[in-house]
Design a protein around this nucleic acid. Structure first.
Lengths: 220, 220
DNA sequence: AATATAATGTGTATTTCTTACACTATTAAA
DNA sequence: TTTAATAGTGTAAGAAATACACATTATATT
């Protein structure tokens, strides 16, 4: 038995204090004119991860994006023409980088747009379920992973970092306790720079020390 | 583009103080005579979960087995004849139940055998990688999931439960601290029964209260 | 009946982590 | 100079995690 084989990408970023996902407006049957996750067929001799990278490049103009497989969705009734198996991936990008790049629109999608994850339109196929799964996954792993730092610019304030945690965990955190905990983890580097362009006291900038992070997690 | 579509199952249980996985000896090209995960093609109009249930029934004689999707594996070079996409599932069973059932051998496999996960033979395809992934996944989720109880008989001793944790986490735990913690979770029921057939002091039996467990996790 | 064996079952003190909580400092704009 | 807006900081109380040793009990052996 054979099946059609596609990739769908939940591309997430953090912008304006909110977690956002990139959606495409479909220009093709079925679900024409609906919003959907960016995705497409995998070519015969193409590795799945390469197909993901290809789609991510088309959508964001970026290479070497962080990605993580979520799950396979293979419902017989996903598509009116018969089973189309899709492997869903989650990708995390920095809004700063995306802003300078241009996405290539294709015949099968009319436009791309970032939506806040708590203001999603109705979505094609089972794409809502896929996004929910990715948010669940992030929520569970956030404390032990690099995800917050993939979503933020390379230099960020502690308040921005806290906002990422709050958006993913969907609850408010105490500022002092959050900073204490983050400091104890020991993989933030305090920079000799401050935020610019704000009309109030500027916050110190920090960067993420990936090496120290990995050292801690390689011991388990 | 179309691809062949199969399911592979990592069927795990706990027996003789060890975590064990069920493997099949292949009777077919490629990897003829090698040990492999039980698995097979998904039929055209069959839901993926139904295919998993079908394979699990053939292998163990059991229905309604706990299962969880692990990941899709789709490497172009997995199979010499071209891409065969497989969705790997993890299934957990109680050895007690399996022992009374008969598996149905098929033309493509010669025999089934339980292997301790730390004494695995060389495996066909990327099946070793799949097993490693399932063990990783279990390790990460064990404290917040029903997995230990899916692997054990319905009535079990605290020492057995501790052994499951130790096998999954791959480290020794302190008996008193383990019991204190398990007790605080509050979803174990102490039964008025003790272990039988041992030549030393018999341990009390406990059962898992699934309702209380779910109540706790529905609040997050 | 006495003894040996093998695993069960139990408490406390120490340290670490988590939580709750409110005010001063700094910058830019008006 | 005043106002507005966010940055940045410490402490006390409670909860959870860790380290650690011995008496108890059922069976098997002599």
């Amino acid at each position: 038995m054979q099946t059609h084989f596609t990739i769908d990408c939940v591309i997430l970023t953090f912008d304006e204090g909110k977690l956002k996902v990139l959606l495409a407006e479909r220009n093709e049957y079925p679900y024409k004119d609906w919003w959907a996750l960016p995705g497409y067929f995998v070519n015969k001799y193409e590795e799945m991860e390469d197909a993901v990278a290809r789609i991510l490049f088309e959508m964001t103009g970026l290479k070497d994006i962080y990605m993580d497989q979520l799950a396979a969705f293979a419902g017989v009734k996903r598509h009116p023409e018969g089973r189309i198996l899709t492997v869903a991936y989650m990708a995390l990008v920095q809004m700063e980088e995306v802003k300078n790049k241009i996405a290539s629109l294709t015949s099968y999608m009319r436009q791309l747009k970032w939506f806040s994850v708590d203001e999603l339109p109705e979505l094609a196929f089972d794409h809502r379920e896929i996004i929910d799964l990715s948010l669940d996954r992030l929520k569970k792993t956030i404390s032990f992973s690099t995800t917050p730092y993939e979503l933020l610019p390379n230099k960020f304030t502690l308040t921005q970092l806290q906002q990422v945690f709050e958006a993913l965990l969907n609850k408010k955190l105490d500022k002092r306790n959050f900073r204490k905990k983050i400091n104890n983890l020991g993989y933030l580097k305090e920079l000799n720079e401050v935020q610019k362009g704000v009309s109030y006291r500027a916050a110190k900038l920090y960067s993420f020390d990936k090496k120290k992070f990995q050292k801690q997690f390689s011991q388990d």
